[in-house]
């Protein structure tokens, strides 16, 4: 799952930053050294550091932007997809009727009848599989392939007033 990868990468990068600060902090007070050589070495290392960040950034951008979740909203939807209309309202979801089976690609046509809401879809293990904003006057189209059978939970992902936390709905996906 992407969430696990993100967690590990974040912790590792934070530890790298922490390590650099700890190293300098531990060496800051002892054996005072001349500044110009430190400065020179730091500048040389920084050039490398900068270019590593640039190359990594280009690679990350290319890899992660090959498949954006916006295609369905631009009208690019698979022919065999099942369409489901969903409208957020204070404080419930109006979910259209559809028979869903595991493996279906579902096109969620998401909008709102009043304020901003956010449609967040969680799989039977309560891991988010995708989301989009539900906004009055606009139609955001979310395309997701629901691989697992079971009960998916819809939570509201945008604060919308008094009962926001209880704006929950369920979608059943058969075997």
């Amino acid at each position: 799952m992407i969430q696990d990868t993100v967690f590990v990468v974040t912790v590792v990068l934070m530890l790298v930053v922490a390590g650099a600060f700890a190293y300098v902090a531990l060496n800051a007070g002892k054996a005072v050294a001349e500044y110009p050589p430190i400065q020179q070495r730091s500048q040389g290392m920084r050039v490398w550091f900068f270019w590593i960040l640039i190359v990594a950034g280009v690679l990350i951008a290319v890899v992660t932007m090959l498949d954006l979740p916006y295609a369905a909203t631009r009208g690019d939807t698979p022919d065999d997809a099942v369409t489901l209309e969903i409208e957020g309202r204070q404080w419930y979801w109006e979910v259209g009727e559809a028979q869903l089976t595991a493996g279906d690609t579902v096109i969620f046509n998401v909008t709102s009848g009043d304020v901003n809401h956010g449609l967040g879809l969680y799989d039977p293990a309560m891991r988010m599989v995708g989301q989009t904003q539900a906004m009055p006057g606009y139609l955001n189209v979310l395309s997701l392939t629901l691989e697992q059978p079971g009960t998916y939970t819809v939570l509201c992902m945008e604060y919308c007033g008094l009962v926001h936390h209880a704006m929950v709905s369920e979608i059943t996906v058969g075997e």
């Binding site: 974040t10 930053v17 954006l68 891991r127 989301q131």
Partner: peptide
């Protein structure tokens, strides 16, 4: 420096899709 790491990662659209808000 450490505090912007999770923000930069969440700024990736594919990540934001499952972690926004």
């Amino acid at each position: 420096s450490a505090g912007i790491v999770p923000a930069i990662i969440d700024g990736v659209i594919a990540v934001n899709h499952v972690m926004h808000n």
